[in-house]
Lab assay of single mutants.
Amino acid sequence: NRLGIIYEIQGMKAVVLTSEGEFLIIRRRKDMKVGQQVSFENEDIYNV
């Protein structure tokens, strides 16, 4: 599992900021809110 803070939500995608200072786009889940810490898997990351 990886951890990140939700920075922005766009439709079915969420932008998270990881503890390494990396911004990633992941698959959104219904319970996500901006500012929330979430765990996610590598499979949830969109390749940009």
Rank of each mutant, 00 (worst) to 15 (best):
S19L: 11
F40L: 09
E43F: 02
G35D: 03
R29I: 06
K33P: 01
G21P: 01
E41N: 10
E43L: 03
L24M: 09
R27Y: 12
A14L: 06
D31S: 15
K13T: 08
S39R: 08
Q10L: 06
V34K: 12
D31I: 05
V15P: 00
G35N: 05
M12C: 15
I26K: 00
S39W: 08
G35T: 02
Q10N: 09
T18N: 03
I26L: 11
Q37T: 12
I25T: 11
I26F: 01
V16L: 04
V16A: 02
L3N: 12
Q37C: 09
N1C: 14
I6M: 01
L24R: 04
G21R: 04
E8F: 14
I9D: 00
Y46N: 06
R2Q: 06
V16T: 02
K30S: 15
Y46Q: 12
E20T: 14
I6C: 06
R27G: 03
Y7L: 14
I25K: 07
K13H: 13
K13D: 04
R28H: 12
S39E: 13
F23Q: 05
Y7T: 07
G35C: 12
L3D: 08
V34E: 04
S19W: 07
I25F: 12
N47E: 14
Y7E: 05
Q10Y: 13
Y7D: 02
D44S: 02
V48C: 15
Q37F: 10
E8D: 09
N1A: 11
L17R: 08
Y7N: 05
Q36G: 03
K33R: 12
M12L: 04
D44P: 10
K33N: 08
E41Y: 09
R29A: 08
L3C: 06
E20R: 09
V38H: 04
V34H: 04
F40M: 08
S19Y: 10
R27C: 12
D31F: 15
S39H: 13
L24G: 01
V34S: 02
I45E: 06
R28N: 07
N42K: 08
E20W: 05
E41K: 14
R27K: 08
N42W: 13
N42F: 12
Q37L: 08
L3V: 12
R27V: 06
D31Q: 14
I25W: 11
G35M: 06
R2G: 07
L3T: 11
V34Y: 05
Y46D: 11
V16E: 00
N47G: 11
E8G: 13
F23W: 15
Q37V: 13
G21D: 03
G35K: 03
Q37G: 06
Y46L: 15
M32G: 02
L3W: 13
S39K: 11
Q37H: 10
M12K: 11
G4E: 01
N1G: 10
V16P: 00
Q36I: 07
I9W: 03
F23E: 03
I26N: 00
I9C: 05
G35V: 00
V38M: 04
V16Y: 00
L17P: 00
V16H: 00
V48S: 13
E22G: 09
N47S: 09
F40H: 01
I9P: 00
Y46T: 10
I9R: 01
L3S: 11
E41C: 14
R29N: 10
L24D: 00
I5M: 10
I6D: 00
Y46W: 08
Q10M: 14
D44N: 02
I9N: 01
E22D: 06
N42Y: 10
G35R: 04
G11T: 05
G21K: 07
N47I: 11
I9Q: 02
Q10A: 07
V16F: 01
R2M: 09
T18Q: 01
N42Q: 10
D44W: 03
Q37K: 09
L3P: 02
I5T: 07
M12Y: 15
I26T: 01
M32V: 05
I6S: 00
Q10W: 15
E22F: 13
D44M: 02
V38Y: 11
L3G: 10
G4S: 02
A14D: 00
I45M: 04
S19A: 10
G4T: 01
L24P: 00
E41I: 11
E22Q: 14
I25R: 08
R28M: 14
M12W: 15
N42L: 11
L24N: 02
I9M: 12
G11V: 06
L17H: 06
V34P: 05
F23C: 10
V15M: 15
G11P: 09
L3K: 10
R29G: 07
E20G: 08
K30A: 15
K13I: 07
I25E: 03
E41S: 14
I6L: 04
L24F: 12
Q36K: 09
Q37M: 14
I26S: 00
L24H: 03
F23S: 05
Q37P: 07
I25D: 03
V48N: 14
E8A: 14
M32K: 01
I25P: 03
F40K: 01
R2L: 10
K13R: 09
V15E: 02
S19T: 12
N47V: 13
Y7C: 11
V48A: 09
R2N: 06
R27F: 14
V38T: 05
R27I: 11
V38A: 05
D44A: 02
A14V: 07
Q36W: 07
V16D: 00
D31T: 15
K33S: 07
R27T: 06
G35E: 02
S19M: 14
M32S: 03
Y7H: 06
V16S: 00
E20D: 09
Y7I: 13
I5C: 07
K30N: 15
V16R: 00
T18E: 02
Y7M: 11
Y46V: 11
M32E: 03
E22S: 11
I5D: 02
G35S: 03
G11E: 12
L3Y: 14
G21L: 04
I5R: 11
E41A: 13
Q10F: 15
E43Q: 04
V15K: 13
L3M: 12
Q37I: 11
V48R: 05
V38S: 03
Q36P: 00
I26V: 05
E43R: 04
E41R: 15
I45F: 03
S39I: 07
K30T: 13
R27Q: 04
V48F: 06
V34F: 04
E41T: 13
T18V: 06
E20I: 09
V16N: 00
F40Q: 01
Q10T: 06
T18L: 04
T18Y: 02
I9V: 09
V48L: 06
G21C: 12
G21T: 02
N1F: 15
Q36M: 14
K13P: 00
V15D: 01
N42V: 12
N42D: 12
Y46R: 07
V48T: 12
S39D: 08
E22A: 14
F23H: 07
K33W: 07
S19K: 14
Q36Y: 10
M12G: 11
